[in-house]
């Protein structure tokens, strides 16, 4: 079994999505627990991806291919995990704020978070504060992510946080913000819980938030 799990990790590192789903299903059918597949194969594989990326041995297109494969594998694992009472990495809702149509950074974060095993709800762009509030109510995410590329749309992130407060649900979710003009200080100023300067850091920060 250990060998099988190791091979799953390797398939994940290579980013072969179809092959990975097949192997995950086979492992489960062969009697492996979803926890073992999750932790020893998938999480271990993505950790290796993360390390190779940090070392400059893997690059973003490869990391994203692995992340996409991970997301496909999680579609199989997640229902099994909840059956056995275990939990995945958590739920992450993300969107770009009102009047901002720039979505590449936000999409990168969403893909990387999927790669870390999060269930990701990508709300889209140009979103009203209400959309964020409703999504938090509906999906009950552990973390809400917001992005803005423009200094003119950046204040909208604060508006969303205020709207969460008004709806009485601010304490039910951690808020993470990002985007080129955003800074650590700005995140603090608007009352966000966390700031990430790039997609990879967003994953690290998200994990930190869950442990807090």
């Amino acid at each position: 079994m250990e060998e099988k799990l190791g091979s799953i990790s390797q398939t994940l590192i290579e980013g072969k999505a179809d092959e990975l789903q097949k192997q995950v299903q086979e492992a489960l059918d062969g009697g492996a627990t979803p926890e073992d597949v999750m932790n020893q194969a998938l999480v271990a594989g993505m950790d290796a991806v993360g390390q190779q990326w940090k070392a400059g041995d893997m690059f973003i297109p490869e990391v994203i291919r692995s992340a996409k494969a991970m997301s496909g594998a999680m579609d199989i694992i997640r229902p099994k995990l909840s059956e056995s009472g275990g939990a995945g990495s958590g739920t992450f809702v993300i969107g770009t704020v009102l009047r901002d149509l720039h979505d590449i950074g936000k999409d990168l974060v969403a893909m990387m978070m999927e790669g870390a095993g999060f269930k990701v709800v990508n709300l889209g762009i140009d979103l009203d504060a209400e959309v964020f509030v409703d999504a938090v109510k509906e999906h009950k995410p552990d973390i809400l992510g917001m992005s803005a590329l423009l200094t003119t749309t950046m204040p909208q992130m604060g508006e969303v946080i205020n709207a969460l407060k008004e709806a009485g649900i601010r304490d039910q979710v951690k808020v993470m913000v990002g985007g080129a003009p955003v800074s650590e200080e700005y995140a603090e100023e608007i009352g966000a819980d966390s700031y990430a300067p790039n997609a990879a850091t967003a994953v690290d920060k998200a994990k930190e938030l869950l442990q807090a």
Partner: peptide, 8 residues
């Protein structure tokens, strides 16, 4: 280009 290490 988007730098493929940093996404910059």
């Amino acid at each position: 280009v988007m730098d493929m290490h940093t996404t910059t």
